[in-house]
Amino acid sequence: MQKTNIMQSETIPRLLFKMSFPMMLSMLIQALYNVVDSIFVAMVSETALTAVSLAFPLQNLLISAAVGTGVGINSLLSRRLGEGKHEEANHVASTSLFLAFAMWVLFVLIGVFLTKPFLALFTKDTELLKLSTSY
């Protein structure tokens, strides 16, 4: 049984729907996570909700860096495979694994050493700072 390449056989509108639907669903789930998280945290206290709100930009920054890097790697890998350059595609894949590990180390270091100083720029309340740092 031979597989067909949907990029060659499907129409552009159908491809757009097929390829964009999983991304839209992922973004919806992420947004719902934030809304539901806020609802439950607000039940704890107003300070807890403020702490989550303070930590949210850092969370978004990490997600944006990871998703942006993933999209770039995916694009490069797809182009190499489409060109039939399998050796270069293998190199891109192995380099991307190293990059993922390096980003993980960077995010851990940022989380450990820079989270509290960053959040301290926005509040002097020690309880709020403690809650937002632990979140």
Rank of each mutant, 00 (worst) to 15 (best):
F40L: 11
F40H: 06
V41R: 01
V41G: 00
A42C: 04
A42E: 00
M43K: 05
M43Q: 11
E46A: 05
E46I: 03
T47V: 13
T47F: 06
T47D: 14
T47Q: 15
A48H: 03
L49W: 00
L49D: 00
L49C: 04
T50I: 05
V52L: 08
V52P: 00
V52T: 04
S53L: 15
L54A: 06
L54W: 14
L54Q: 12
F56P: 09
F56V: 07
F56M: 15
F56K: 12
P57G: 05
Q59W: 12
N60W: 13
S64F: 15
S64L: 13
A65R: 08
A66R: 15
G68D: 10
G68V: 03
T69A: 09
G72Q: 13
I73P: 08
I73H: 11
I73E: 06
I73L: 10
N74R: 09
S75K: 09
L76F: 11
L76N: 12
L76C: 07
S78H: 13
R79P: 02
R80P: 01
L81S: 07
L81E: 06
G82C: 03
G82Q: 07
G82I: 01
G84K: 05
K85A: 10
H86V: 02
E87V: 05
E88P: 06
E88H: 05
E88W: 07
A89T: 03
N90F: 02
N90H: 13
H91Y: 15
V92M: 04
V92L: 11
S94M: 01
S94P: 04
S96C: 03
S96N: 02
S96M: 05
L97A: 06
F98D: 02
L99E: 07
M103L: 15
W104F: 14
V105I: 13
V105Y: 08
L106W: 08
F107D: 04
F107P: 06
F107Q: 11
V108T: 07
V108K: 04
L109A: 10
L109F: 15
G111L: 11
V112W: 14
F113S: 10
L114Q: 01
L114Y: 02
T115M: 06
L119Y: 00
L119T: 05
L119R: 08
A120D: 05
A120L: 02
A120I: 00
F122R: 09
F122M: 12
T123A: 07
K124R: 14
D125T: 06
D125R: 09
D125N: 15
